[in-house]
Computed example of a mutant assay.
Amino acid sequence: MTMKLVIFDVDGTLLDSQHAIVAAMAKAYIQHGLPAPTREAVRAIVGLSVAEAVAALSAEASDHPLQDIGDAFKRSFMESRKSSPDGMALYPGALEIIETLAARHDVLLGLATGNSRRGVAHFLERFGIEDRFVTRQTADDAPSKPHPAMVLQAIAEAGVSPECAVMIGDTTFDMEMARAAGARAIGVGWGYHPRERLFAAGAETILESFEELPGVLGLLDAVEAA
C-alpha cells in the first residue's frame, strides 16, 4: 500500500474567508490615506503571504508603506476574526472530506497556506481538527507560494515521495507550487482564481465539490500504477 499525502490550501479551498480578507485589506489601505484595492484585485492575490500580497497590490505605487499596510491588514483581520467568529465558514463538504480522508490508512493530510502559524492554529482549533494534519506549512515556515518550499517541507515531514503528494488549492499559486515540487495538482472550482487559469498553471483536474475528491484520488492512483 502506497501512502499518499493530500495537502490542502486553507483560504478559498477549505475556508470561505473572502469577505473578511477583502474588508481587512480595504481597511489597511484606507487607514494610510490610500484608496482601497478592488475586490477583484484582492481575490487575485489571496494565497500569497501578506508581504507579497501587499507588494502585488501596490506594484504601481512605489511610495506605499508596504510593511505598515501589511501590519495593518494583519491587525484588522485578527480583529475581524475575534469580533465575528462566524463570519468565516468551511465550504460545504470540507469537514466531511477531512474526516473521511483522515480515517483512511493510506492517506496522510497536510496544510500549505499563506496564513501565519497563529492563524492556522486558530483555524484548526475552531473546527476541532487539530490532530488531523501531520504537517502544517505556513507563511512563517517558508517562502511565499508559488515557491515549492511548503510542499517540499510537507513531503519531507510526512516521509513520502513527491509523486505521492497531491496539492488541493484554488489559486494558480497552489498549482505552480505543487508542480515545482514534483507533486500532483488538483484545483477547486469555488475559490479565487478561474478554472482556465488553474488548468494553465498545471491543475490535472478541478473539483466541483469535495465529494469528488476520493474518486479523483483513486483515478490518480490508477494512472500512476499504469
Rank of each mutant, 00 (worst) to 15 (best):
residue 150 M to R: 14
residue 49 S to T: 07
residue 38 T to V: 00
residue 198 L to E: 11
residue 71 D to R: 12
residue 42 V to F: 00
residue 144 S to C: 06
residue 32 H to Y: 05
residue 37 P to M: 09
residue 63 D to M: 03
residue 106 D to Q: 13
residue 178 A to P: 14
residue 108 L to V: 08
residue 147 H to A: 05
residue 123 F to L: 05
residue 96 E to P: 01
residue 218 G to L: 08
residue 142 A to E: 14
residue 133 F to N: 00
residue 193 H to Y: 11
residue 131 D to T: 11
residue 42 V to H: 02
residue 156 A to T: 14
residue 21 I to C: 01
residue 27 K to F: 05
residue 130 E to D: 15
residue 193 H to V: 11
residue 187 G to R: 09
residue 33 G to W: 00
residue 96 E to G: 01
residue 13 T to R: 02
residue 90 L to V: 04
residue 9 D to N: 06
residue 114 G to H: 10
residue 207 L to V: 12
residue 37 P to T: 12
residue 67 Q to W: 06
residue 213 L to T: 11
residue 166 V to C: 13
residue 192 Y to P: 04
residue 77 F to T: 00
residue 225 A to E: 12
residue 60 E to P: 03
residue 123 F to K: 05
residue 75 R to S: 01
residue 110 G to D: 05
residue 160 V to Q: 06
residue 9 D to C: 09
residue 110 G to T: 03
residue 80 S to R: 11
residue 98 I to E: 09
residue 46 V to H: 04
residue 143 P to R: 05
residue 122 H to P: 02
residue 87 G to L: 03
residue 197 R to W: 14
residue 51 A to I: 05
residue 96 E to Y: 00
residue 63 D to I: 03
residue 144 S to Q: 11
residue 40 E to P: 02
residue 153 Q to W: 08
residue 222 A to L: 12
residue 45 I to V: 15
residue 114 G to V: 10
residue 226 A to F: 06
residue 188 V to E: 02
residue 130 E to A: 15
residue 162 P to T: 12
residue 15 L to Y: 02
residue 128 G to Q: 08
residue 128 G to C: 06
residue 95 L to M: 09
residue 124 L to C: 06
residue 52 E to M: 04
residue 36 A to Q: 05
residue 225 A to W: 08
residue 89 A to E: 12
residue 204 E to S: 13
residue 161 S to M: 12
residue 122 H to W: 02
residue 212 E to Q: 03
residue 79 E to T: 08
residue 156 A to Q: 13
residue 130 E to H: 15
residue 14 L to W: 09
residue 36 A to N: 08
residue 211 E to I: 02
residue 152 L to H: 12
residue 134 V to Q: 01
residue 131 D to L: 08
residue 112 A to Q: 07
residue 204 E to Q: 13
residue 86 D to F: 08
residue 88 M to H: 13
residue 131 D to K: 10
residue 103 A to Q: 14
residue 120 V to M: 06
residue 9 D to W: 08
residue 63 D to G: 03
residue 183 A to Y: 15
residue 217 L to P: 00
residue 68 D to T: 13
residue 210 F to E: 00
residue 224 E to D: 15
residue 177 M to F: 14
residue 144 S to G: 07
residue 141 D to S: 13
residue 64 H to R: 02
residue 35 P to G: 06
residue 103 A to I: 11
residue 8 F to A: 03
residue 148 P to I: 13
residue 224 E to I: 13
residue 65 P to T: 01
residue 221 D to Y: 09
residue 154 A to H: 12
residue 102 A to N: 10
residue 55 A to F: 00
residue 181 A to Y: 04
residue 122 H to N: 04
residue 121 A to T: 00
residue 43 R to W: 14
residue 152 L to P: 09
residue 81 R to I: 02
residue 172 T to C: 14
residue 42 V to C: 01
residue 45 I to D: 10
residue 43 R to S: 13
residue 22 V to G: 03
residue 37 P to N: 06
residue 183 A to C: 15
residue 142 A to W: 07
residue 203 A to P: 07
residue 158 A to L: 14
residue 80 S to K: 09
residue 167 M to T: 07
residue 74 K to R: 15
residue 120 V to I: 07
residue 122 H to V: 03
residue 136 R to L: 04
residue 17 S to D: 09
residue 88 M to A: 15
residue 188 V to P: 01
residue 183 A to F: 15
residue 54 V to M: 11
residue 116 S to N: 02
residue 160 V to N: 08
